[in-house]
Design a protein around this nucleic acid. Structure first.
Lengths: 353, 353
DNA sequence: CATTTGGTGTAAAACGTTTTAAAATGGCGG
DNA sequence: CCGCCATTTTAAAACGTTTTACACCAAATG
């Protein structure tokens, strides 16, 4: 059906090799032949068959994107940026969701490697150092996005997570909060660690004491966030909560609602990651916003830079994007100790989403 | 590097063709040879090279998914279902976002066809009838999801949109609302039309008069929804709003907040599509929920059914999934006419997100 | 016994490229 | 006029499959 390179060659009255050279610019071709070939291509509407090319070159014009959490719109933004770049360069994008599961990540890596994708953009799970190693071993270009891995010799793009958390906590401290609970994220990933570091840094700098027991292990899902927030709130010790990601912020809201606590009157809340609903809620949520689209766009750019300069790979680059504290209505000065508020309702409440 | 079919053949002491036959089951192979071949495959860890196969068969084990709106989590759920199916069948999934732009849709269709994807799952833009026609012309399997197109001879999976809207409006009517505004969706797509039909049906059945001017052209983005909601609210005529999709519900919330109106005291609000934030907001949103994951999962199932029964294509099937009305707190009986509430603030407010 | 028939196996062609190695062309100095 | 080099072109080999067409053999048929 579709025209092949052979048809083009015949029509232009040249050899197949010449056509190939014109298309790929791999060799000098005299201007006259070049013109003839281009005319033939035009007339036939010829497009090189991707499989023939892929078979010969051992690689297809396809890149892969690995995303750890499909419910978090933050990653949808990152994917947007990567997709934009892929389109720019005429590559197809295979997007896979690992759902924080190293096993699934491993599966996808091996299956995509076998498919000979040209490169990877990955926001790794906690086991990334291991699961991604086959990519490096095969010498396939890899860019890490959002979550970085110390010492891995690849391009890495992330936000200034420590700085973001630092700003958020300083904001709460300035308002007068002293007991600030944290809904922590997935362990063993850089974003969680960096944000916790920012939290501690703000306390250290202010000279105020920090109660490590207020750092509740959350994770990444709504239910987990809700449970963690609930136990934090029921302890009656905190006047503010810092939620380390989008989804857990929703969980915290759920718990507040369930316990009949009002925000910011009873508890202040700061989230990490802005989102479309964060602005329109009542109260509007104070959040640390990342430049999520830009994260993806930049990661894509770095990947293609590497793909284009194939023979001489550039030195791995690490980029950190600024974060922004958006103050809305969910944070205010603490009013009264929380414990009184809760006394009436007992402590046997169980999360039920 | 990786083993080829040739290596397997040599190791098993058979011909290449035999190995191929064992792998694909395309011909009978004697048990003894079969065993030998399988052993060789095992030992070498052989996996057929996808490009060789694709080149020969003119098609790769890859399917494409076209999504019209990247910000709406509803579509992320659909994508989840499709991805699950793709994994099940060992296919890769290329996901592209058209952003409601027929031009982009056309571009992706042509580029994916040229890539020889094995099939498409598409939630089409308003121009779907035209932009998708090249797929049919080439005889590539296609499944429509969420938005259907009348008379197109392909599998189609959607929700009972009319029924969902009908339930929502009946709920509002039963509460006593008579002037119900609608934030309408993208024109010329089935979901919008069906939901509007449900709206009208509920009115018709109740015998109450319907004011067509309360159907405000929204579209699909937050800003559009906010503007439409604002003009509806400023008219002072409505006591309830039915928002036809997720994103516009957020827009409506934005307008409510901006105008200082409370929900449900001043205005009741019903949205289409449930979401993670809808439940935890204050007030919790009353919504018509779709089985979004299932939509995608089913669409994928239908696509692979068609791919597997290639020589004799089955009759196109149309599936409609039940919708559910989830009543939360954003809908209540109307209290006082809205016009009084708004009199104090004038009508020169402009959307500013 | 000669000839089909049906079941297994294989060599070789084909899919559409890119690239290597060799051939043709043309200009130039000897 | 010949040989030599530089430049441009091309034929052919490869990439790894699937599939067609044929070869082989044993059993069944006439």
């Amino acid at each position: 059906m579709a025209a092949t390179i052979k048809d083009v060659a015949k029509r232009a009255g040249v050899s197949i090799a010449t056509v190939s050279n014109v298309i790929n610019g791999s060799r000098r071709v005299s201007p006259e032949l070049k013109k003839k070939v281009q005319k033939a291509i035009e007339e036939l509407g010829y497009q090189p068959n991707p499989f023939g090319r892929a078979l010969r070159k051992g690689e297809s014009s396809t890149i892969a994107l690995l995303i750890p959490d499909r419910s978090n719109p933050f990653y949808a933004q990152i994917a947007w940026g990567v997709e934009e770049q892929a389109r720019r360069y005429g590559y197809a994008l295979i997007t896979c969701h690992t759902d924080e599961d190293p096993g699934l990540e491993e599966f996808y890596v091996s299956s995509l490697l076998h498919r000979r994708v040209a490169g990877f953009v990955v926001a790794p799970t906690s086991a990334g150092r291991d699961t991604l190693s086959p990519i490096l071993r095969r010498g396939v270009p890899l860019v890490l996005v959002d979550r970085v891995i110390e010492g891995l010799p690849v391009d890495q793009v992330s936000s200034d997570n420590e700085g973001g958390a630092y700003m958020a906590i300083r904001h709460l401290l300035q308002l007068g909060h002293r007991n600030i609970g944290v809904l922590s994220g997935v362990e063993d990933i850089s974003t969680t660690q960096d944000r916790i570091r920012g939290y501690k840094k703000a306390f250290a700098e202010s000279g105020l004491p920090l109660d490590e027991s207020l750092i509740a292990p959350g994770c990444s899902q709504i239910e987990e966030g809700a449970a963690a927030a609930e136990s934090l709130l029921l302890s009656g010790e905190v006047t503010a909560i810092f939620s380390i990601n989008n989804m857990m912020t929703l969980g915290a809201l759920h718990s507040l609602k369930k316990l009949g606590l009002r925000c910011p009157e009873d508890v202040s809340l700061v989230g990490f990651d802005d989102s479309e609903w964060a602005a329109v809620m009542t109260p509007g949520l104070t959040v640390v916003a990342q430049q999520s689209y830009e994260l993806g766009y930049l990661a894509g750019a770095l990947l293609f830079r590497r793909l284009k300069r194939r023979p001489k790979p550039p030195k791995p680059r690490t980029v950190k994007l600024r974060t922004i504290l958006i103050i809305r209505e969910s944070t205010a000065e603490p009013r009264e100790p929380l414990s009184g508020k809760l006394a009436a309702r007992g402590s046997s409440v169980v999360a039920n989403l």
